[in-house]
């Protein structure tokens, strides 16, 4: 599947010109390397130019890009090893949330993340990474496992939202989200959350009540999807780009507002153009956080986490 966004069009046009030229050179046996090098330099400049001025809506599209690395891609690319564990022990195993035991540098970790699907079949199986109550209950079970064996927790957040369907409502999706946050607040082991793609409202915060919250450069984090916001604000879901501006859902805004701790830079042209490099950046950022957090006493970790969220909010006293 090829996905080209409007803002990427000039780049893809250049890319096809380069490919054409390469093919021509190969077929005719001509040396066109100077022209190719020139076009490639042009492509690089254009990428820089375009990616320096991305609007929040462009970032929303990038965060949802079908080629963007997903949670298990990061686990595979950044961890030395990983053993996936299954089930909430209450009757279900939600494929929208994956979790297990991983080795990362000198650390043994519990990793939990939302998992999107790559093709139509897997997308449906994973419910587009919209977790049901059992997904969050599986996460909680793994959080408690981490606490018992004193393993730090890494969460990889990537969900449009928690599943809003009748089935999820019947099994207490709201309670599961609330309990997942509460469980994270009670942990005395270091916890790091990375927003890797879509940080979609309650479904995202359920896994992001961590000591440190990092965000990939082109990930988004929002209280409501821009489409939903546009429907309320402008009575027109097509005005999502304006709503994305209003919501300030980019990593830069989240950092400015003091709601995340660090932005992990993505390679030029975003994560999907170079998953390997992106994963290595995530790895080193997470390792650095773990190095800092593992020096802190368990009770202090809990208190720090409390204070981290306690001070969030902007109001005045009259």
């Amino acid at each position: 599947m090829i996905t080209i966004f409007d803002f990427e069009k000039p780049i893809s046009e250049l890319e096809s010109a380069i490919a054409e030229l390469r093919q021509l050179a190969a077929e005719k046996g001509l040396d066109r390397s100077r022209e190719i090098a020139e076009l490639e330099a042009q492509r690089e400049r254009l990428l820089k130019q375009i990616f320096a001025h991305l609007r929040p809506w462009d970032k929303t599209l990038l965060a949802r890009h079908p080629k963007r690395p997903y949670a298990l891609d990061y686990v595979r690319l950044m961890c030395e090893s990983f053993l996936e564990l299954h089930g909430d022990r209450l009757g279900f195993d939600d494929p929208a949330i994956v979790g297990g035991l991983a080795k990362l540098g000198c650390y043994r970790l519990v990793v939990v993340g939302q998992q999107k699907g790559r093709d139509l079949k897997e997308r449906q199986k994973r419910n587009f990474a919209m977790a049901k109550p059992e997904g969050y209950r599986k996460a909680m079970r793994l959080f408690r496992l981490a606490e018992k064996f004193r393993l730090p927790v890494l969460t990889l957040v990537d969900t449009p939202a928690a599943d809003p369907g009748v089935e999820s409502e019947s099994r207490g999706i709201s309670e599961a989200i609330a309990q997942s946050m509460l469980t994270m607040f009670e942990l005395s082991v270091p916890t790091v959350a990375v927003i890797i793609g879509e940080g979609g409202s309650g479904g995202a915060i359920a896994l992001a009540a961590a000591n440190r919250v990092l965000m990939l450069e082109h990930a988004i984090y929002s209280v409501i999807p821009p489409e939903g916001c546009a429907a309320i604000l402008y009575r027109d879901p097509n005005k999502a780009p304006q709503a994305a501006d209003a919501l300030r859902l980019t990593s830069e805004s989240a950092l400015e507002l003091g709601l995340i701790d660090l932005i992990i830079p993505e390679p030029l042209g975003a994560a999907h153009r170079d998953p390997q490099t992106t994963a290595l950046s995530v790895r080193s950022a997470v390792l650095q956080q773990l190095d800092e957090l593992s020096r802190i006493e368990p009770d202090t970790l809990r208190e720090h986490r409390y204070q981290r969220f306690r001070q969030m909010g902007v109001y005045e006293t009259v």
């Binding site: 609330a178 209280v223 507002l257």
Partner: peptide, 21 residues
């Protein structure tokens, strides 16, 4: 959550949950 405060309002979910604990 109050949409008009963006991500800050989402964080109130975590903040109030922490206070329950």
């Amino acid at each position: 959550a109050r949409m008009q405060e963006g991500l800050i309002s989402l964080m109130q979910m975590a903040k109030t949950t922490a206070a329950v604990s």
